[in-house]
């Protein structure tokens, strides 16, 4: 970890209390923070040079019954990355927008709303971004079954022969 990042972490801990730190790389650090401190930490990081929101994404942890929101901040001064992660409830997921910090977050938040169903309070623009006329639960949730949806919506080809078995025999996975 670089010295400047260490100093910044100490400062953040002083301001926002302790949190879990995971060092990924020499220039990459992941911090797990509580959801009410996220906006404060992001604001501080932005003012310290981590001004580029290179990604805002979401991970579905279905066993923990939680969503993990991930903000990746990049500094153009020293090429370091801060990965700020936070956990929110999977049932009726809600979070606050960071549109006032980074206007581009509007589109990341639209995408997350479309693919995970997370509501962002303060973002007025929650129209679907990529899918057209979607009619099921958000598709990147782990309880969504894409194969079943594909079978229901897009009929496949009916084969007279069992080609999959034949291919397995060809490949040598199975004895014919």
């Amino acid at each position: 970890m670089m010295n400047s990042m260490n100093d910044l972490l100490e400062e953040l801990k002083k301001l926002f209390g302790n949190f879990e730190v995971q060092e990924i790389d020499e220039r990459e650090v992941k911090i797990d923070v509580e959801s009410d401190k996220v906006v404060g930490i992001l604001t501080t990081l932005k003012s310290k040079g981590y001004s580029h929101l290179s990604l805002l994404t979401c991970v579905d942890w279905i066993n923990e019954n939680k969503f993990e929101l991930i903000y990746i901040l990049y500094s153009w001064q020293n090429g370091c990355k801060f990965i700020v992660a936070t956990w929110i409830e999977r049932k009726n997921p809600k979070f606050v927008t960071v549109m006032n910090l980074w206007p581009v977050a509007r589109f990341y938040e639209r995408e997350i709303h479309e693919f995970f169903g997370v509501e962002f309070e303060g973002n007025d623009d929650m129209k679907p971004l990529i899918l057209e006329l979607w009619d099921d639960i958000p598709p990147l949730r782990k309880d969504f079954d894409p194969l079943e949806y594909s079978k229901k919506k897009f009929p496949g080809r009916q084969y007279d022969k069992d080609v999959i078995q034949e291919a397995l025999i060809f490949r040598g996975d199975k004895n014919g």
Partner: peptide, 12 residues
């Protein structure tokens, strides 16, 4: 074949 966004056969 199991994607939620791509179709499976064009001649349909």
């Amino acid at each position: 074949y199991d994607s939620y966004a791509t179709i499976n056969r064009v001649d349909y």
